[in-house]
């Protein structure tokens, strides 16, 4: 017995070490950085001062005050959460029927459909975003066709590119598999006899779905939602390339602090808030998942 428990710890040692070094430690460094001054040319200023042989700490709460004193960052956070919620909901509404269809189809077509769901992963993430830029571009087929039709009704031309809509379409496109796969894994395990039993006991199509399938799939819904919500919340590439001036998310501002603004401490503050938000969402999700 003792040997067994030892080997259990031994096996989990490498992943534990990995997470400690590359996740826990950087998070702590970032937390520390959020209380420091920015360096003159980017980076961080020293965290202590040496004067007349005396060493004093040179830390500050200014960065955190800056977050709370204006509402623009808070509003940006709320806006980002709004985009993330919207993308998650759209992924759920689109992904659920798809996952259900795959889970209920025959063995052969099931494998093919699953392959199609993960097929986009075979090409690079940025390449796929550039593809959307081509689709949405003002001279692209989609925009021109749409504007042609709108012109018939005397409505002025629209641009699809550089808008929150374009951004949202792409966010959903990129993250849909993360919703579909956990949902499929859940739905595929459902005992179909339960649906027969519900029907036998008088439940029609809709009640069978809402009273049996949906409640039994909640853990899959939660897992999928977390997998979509968290990466979308921190996303910067898609808003950068497709979002335009309106479609800015917190990820863009964080990136900006570290790159253009060279204000690492304030970037750290925003990162910490993002991390805490993400952890809170996961905790909330797992609490919801544990309830019957």
């Amino acid at each position: 017995m003792q040997g067994k428990s030892w080997s259990k710890y031994l096996l989990s040692l490498p992943p534990m070490a990995y997470l400690l070094i590359f996740f826990a430690a950087p998070t702590l460094i970032m937390l520390f950085a959020s209380f420091r001054y920015p360096g003159e040319y980017g980076g961080l200023a020293p965290w202590y001062l040496q004067e007349n042989g005396r060493i004093t700490l040179d830390l500050t709460l200014e960065n955190w005050q800056r977050l709370l004193c204006t509402d623009i960052y808070i509003r940006l956070f709320i806006k980002s959460i709004g985009y993330a919620v919207a993308a998650t909901l759209i992924c759920m509404v689109m992904g659920y029927p798809l996952a259900l269809m795959i889970a209920r189809s025959g063995r052969k077509s099931r494998d093919l459909l699953l392959l199609l769901v993960i097929l986009p992963f075979w090409s690079n993430f940025l390449v796929r975003i550039y593809a959307w830029m081509i689709i949405f571009s003002p001279v692209g087929a989609l925009t021109r066709m749409l504007n042609g039709v709108l012109d018939l009704f005397g409505v002025g031309p629209v641009t699809l590119m550089y808008s929150p809509t374009a951004m949202l379409v792409c966010l959903v496109y990129v993250h849909l598999p993360f919703m579909v796969l956990p949902l499929y894994a859940n739905l595929e395990k459902h005992d179909l006899d339960l649906l027969d039993a519900a029907q036998d006991l008088g439940a029609g199509k809709w009640r069978r779905f809402w009273l049996i399938t949906w409640p039994l799939s909640l853990s899959g819904v939660i897992a999928g939602s977390i997998l979509v919500f968290i990466p979308v919340l921190g996303m910067f590439a898609i808003p950068d390339l497709l979002g335009g001036t309106d479609g800015i998310m917190i990820g863009n501002v964080i990136k900006q602090q570290f790159m253009e603004s060279r204000d690492w401490p304030f970037g750290s503050v925003l990162s910490m808030v993002l991390t805490v938000t993400a952890v809170a969402v996961v905790l909330l999700g797992s609490r919801l998942g544990q309830r019957r």
Partner: peptide, 29 residues
């Protein structure tokens, strides 16, 4: 359709709804 027939089935594996209590299961029909 099955839901409109005045007869019920006992399934081989009972097909009790796992997310409902015993009382909720019995209340279902």
């Amino acid at each position: 359709p099955p839901e409109r027939r005045p007869l019920h089935t006992i399934f081989q594996n009972y097909a009790l709804f796992p997310h409902m209590t015993v009382a909720e299961n019995i209340a279902f029909p």
